[in-house]
């Protein structure tokens, strides 16, 4: 399990349930590495500001993370973390490698609107 304060997605079933129960979802799929940690930190801070979005993480090396690794939107990705934004269960945006809080905020505002 990743050492973050975010909701942890541990299985394919939990991933499906999260998407079913929440309209707007952001999942960061990574490891406890230098490119991933800043993204988790930004998400932890944004969680308090964006009440309309569910923020979660998923361990990249867990077999069930194939639900993210194998997404067509992530086909060209070669840098951790893979971050996927879902609206009503559909992928609306995906990014590869480190992103700043500013870049994440821009994506959240564009696709989910501000809370």
């Amino acid at each position: 399990m990743l050492r973050t304060n975010l909701t942890h997605v541990l299985s394919e079933q939990e991933h499906a349930k999260l998407l079913q129960e929440n309209e707007n979802v952001m999942i960061c799929c990574g490891r406890m590495g230098p490119m991933c940690i800043p993204v988790y930190e930004s998400m932890e801070e944004l969680e308090g500001e964006y009440k309309n979005i569910k923020f979660a993480d998923m361990e990249f090396d867990t077999p069930d993370a194939k639900v993210i690794r194998n997404l067509p939107e992530c086909r060209s990705f070669q840098g951790l973390p893979f971050v996927v934004y879902y609206k009503n269960g559909k992928v609306v945006k995906a990014t590869s490698s480190i992103q700043s809080k500013e870049q994440i905020t821009e994506i959240l505002d564009e696709h989910f609107g501000n809370n």
Binding site: R31, G33, P34, M35, C36, S76, F77, Q78, G79, L80, T95, S96, S97, I98
Partner: peptide, 15 residues
């Protein structure tokens, strides 16, 4: 960046 260009070997080497 993240699609072939990396600044972190330990993060992305296994791709």
């Amino acid at each position: 960046k993240g699609k072939g260009i990396s600044y972190c070997a330990t993060c992305d080497g296994d791709f």
